[in-house]
């Protein structure tokens, strides 16, 4: 059915020209523009640190999607964030293999050491702590990642030292 009932116009954040151009380059690589949505969201998060609702709206407009559809994609992947994150993202894998090798204790120790709960950011904005699903490093469990880097075969002291060493 063709209807005249269109979604209401939103206020949206403005994305930089460079970001816009990078997204357009991604779109050009796909037969269907919305195929580039995931790539575009990565670019946006890399630049802005997170994708808050107004940003999601701006992306939806570029793709001609309802912002709720962008939310659907954002919330499906836990690598996307809708709230600002700390300078360093520390994520402990708590999937089966790592948990069997003490990952949950490790995460608890880091919580105590940093004085925050998983999912929170230190007050100085230095570290966001969280857990993660399997990162494919089961043979080196327990492990965590800091940003894009893996750190494997950890124990409490090693993990604390790693976190303390972050600028």
């Amino acid at each position: 059915m063709v209807s005249t009932l269109v979604a209401q116009a939103p206020e949206a954040t403005v994305l930089s020209d460079e970001l816009r151009a990078a997204i357009d380059r991604e779109i050009a690589r796909f037969p269907e523009p919305r195929g580039a949505l995931l790539a575009a969201l990565r670019l946006v998060q890399d630049e802005l640190g997170c994708i808050a609702p107004p940003t999601a709206r701006a992306v939806a407009e570029i793709f001609g999607l309802h912002p709720a559809e962008v939310l659907e994609v954002l919330s499906f992947y836990n690598l996307f964030h809708t709230e600002p994150q700390g300078r360093h993202e520390v994520r402990v894998c708590t999937n089966l293999a790592c948990s069997l090798r003490g990952a949950r204790t490790l995460l608890r120790e880091l919580e105590e050491h940093l004085g925050i709960r998983a999912g929170q950011t230190t007050p100085d904005g230095r570290v966001t702590l969280g857990h993660e699903e399997c990162l494919g490093a089961c043979g080196y469990a327990p492990m965590l990642r800091i940003g894009d880097r893996y750190h494997e075969e950890l124990d409490g002291p090693a993990a604390r030292a790693l976190v303390d060493g972050l600028p």
Binding site: V6, A7, H66, A68
Partner: peptide, 8 residues
């Protein structure tokens, strides 16, 4: 065609 609902 208003698309307000999604599964998050």
């Amino acid at each position: 065609e208003t698309g307000e609902l999604v599964v998050e």
